[in-house]
Simulated scan of single mutants.
Amino acid sequence: MPDQSRFLLLDRDDVERLLQPADVMAAVKEAFVLHSEREGRVFPVVRERLATGGVFGIKSGDVPSQGLLGFKAAGFWPENRKQGGEPHQATVLLMDPATGRPLCMIDGNAITTMRTGAAGAWGLKMLARADSTSVCVFGAGVQAAVQLRFALVQFPSLSQARYVTHDGARNPQFEAAFSTFSSRCDLQLASDRNDAVATSDIVITATPGAGALFDAHALQPGTHLNCVGADTRGKRELPDGVLPRVRLVVDDHEQAKQIGETQWAPSTPCIELGDLLTGKHAFQRQPSDITVFDMTGLALQDLTVARGLYRRAVAEHVGSSIAWPW
Results as ranks from 00 to 15, higher is better:
Ala196Phe: 09
Leu34Gln: 11
Arg311Val: 01
Gln20Glu: 05
Arg312Ser: 05
Met295Leu: 14
Leu152Trp: 08
Asp192Gln: 09
Ile58Ala: 09
Gly297Pro: 08
Gly308Pro: 10
Ser321Val: 01
Glu39Leu: 12
Leu277Glu: 06
Ser36Asn: 06
Asp11Trp: 14
Gly61Ala: 10
Gly229Val: 08
His281Thr: 06
Pro21Thr: 01
Val92Asn: 05
Asp131Thr: 01
Gly222Gln: 13
Cys227Trp: 00
Phe76Ala: 13
Lys235Trp: 07
Asp289Met: 10
Val242Pro: 02
Leu303Trp: 07
Arg38Lys: 14
Ala299Thr: 02
Arg41Pro: 07
Arg162Leu: 07
His88Met: 12
Asn80Gln: 13
Pro208Ile: 00
Phe181Val: 04
Trp122Pro: 03
Gln4Ile: 00
Gly241Leu: 06
Trp264Ser: 00
Gln263Asn: 06
Gly85Met: 15
Glu16Pro: 08
Val28Thr: 03
Gly308Tyr: 10
Gly57Ile: 02
Phe150Ala: 06
Ser5Pro: 10
Ala169Gln: 12
Asp96Asn: 15
Phe174Trp: 11
Leu298Ile: 00
Glu237Met: 14
Asp107His: 13
Ala190Arg: 13
Arg170Pro: 08
Ala306Asn: 09
Arg129Trp: 05
Arg285Val: 01
Glu30Ile: 00
Ser191Ile: 02
Ser200Asp: 06
Phe7Asn: 11
His253Gly: 13
Gly85Gln: 15
Leu50Met: 12
Ala73Leu: 15
Arg236Met: 11
Thr165Asn: 09
Arg312Ala: 08
